[in-house]
């Protein structure tokens, strides 16, 4: 098993993580789990960014991943604050409970 690990390996891993998170985001109804699925998508993006940066011999990919971490932290703080507010309002975490927000 002396296979070299190239960037296709990392790209496939990153896209698999991203797609898993995407499917979870679309399928789950729990608001917290939908946010958690976006975090899974972030993991895929981090892997992809590092892979591309490494492939081109630059550090910009890792810098981008660092900024992604900052955005993820901000998103978690604000999004979960909103989720708590919505839970207080409707008494459930169901995303379907808010479907009447649309214009009839």
């Amino acid at each position: 098993m002396a296979s070299t690990i190239g960037f296709v390996h990392l790209l496939v891993l990153g896209s698999a993580l991203f797609v898993t998170g995407l499917a979870g985001f679309l399928a789950r109804r729990n608001l917290i789990l939908m946010f958690l699925a976006t975090e899974v998508m972030f993991q895929g993006i981090v892997v992809t960014a590092v892979a591309f940066g490494r492939y081109h011999g630059q550090l910009s990919g890792q810098a981008f991943a660092l900024f992604l971490l900052i955005v993820a932290a901000v998103e978690a703080a604000l999004g979960l604050g909103l989720v708590v507010l919505m839970f207080r309002r409707s008494g459930s975490l169901d995303a379907e409970a808010w479907r009447t927000m649309r214009e009839e």
């Binding site: 797609v19 499917a23 399928a27 729990n30 459930s92 995303a95």
Partner: peptide, 19 residues
Amino acid sequence: YDVRTRPAFVPLLLGFLLL
């Protein structure tokens, strides 16, 4: 809403196509 999710066929079809 945890035990019974949305119908998972369309999200997984989209995921498969994207992957």
